[in-house]
Simulated scan of single mutants.
Amino acid sequence: MARIDFIQSLHASSRRNYIQRVVEHDKAACATVARQFGADYWDGERCYGYGGYRYDGRWRPVAERLAAHYGLRPGHRVLDIGCGKGYLLYELTQAVPGIEVAGIDISSYGIDHAKEEIRPFLQVGDCRTLPYPDASFDFVVSLGTFHNLPLEGVWQALREMQRVGRGPGKYFMVESFRTEEEKVNLLYWQLTCLSFHSPESWAWIAEQAGYDGDCGFIFFE
Rank of each mutant, 00 (worst) to 15 (best):
Y41Q: 02
G165Y: 07
G75H: 12
A209V: 07
V174C: 10
A34E: 06
E100D: 07
E200Y: 03
F137H: 07
I218F: 10
G110Q: 05
E207I: 00
M1Y: 02
I111V: 15
Q156N: 13
G167I: 13
N148L: 13
G86Y: 10
G71M: 08
G125T: 04
P168W: 03
Y211R: 04
E91R: 02
Q20M: 15
F196M: 09
A114V: 03
F196L: 09
G57E: 04
S198V: 01
C47H: 15
S136W: 07
L149F: 07
E221K: 12
Y87R: 02
V23M: 12
F37A: 03
F121S: 15
Y188W: 14
A157C: 09
A39W: 00
Y70F: 14
T93L: 06
H11M: 07
L191K: 05
D43I: 03
E207Q: 12
L66Q: 03
I81V: 15
T93Y: 13
R35F: 12
M1P: 02
I99C: 13
Y211Q: 02
C127K: 00
I111S: 07
Q190T: 14
W155P: 03
F220P: 00
C83F: 01
D126I: 01
E200S: 11
Q156Y: 10
E207M: 04
T145F: 14
E45G: 15
R77E: 06
V22E: 13
F217S: 04
W42Q: 01
Q156T: 05
G165D: 07
L88R: 07
L79Y: 04
L194Q: 14
A114R: 06
G125S: 05
E175G: 12
S198N: 00
R16D: 04
N185G: 11
R15P: 10
R21C: 10
F219W: 09
I106L: 15
A209W: 04
H147G: 11
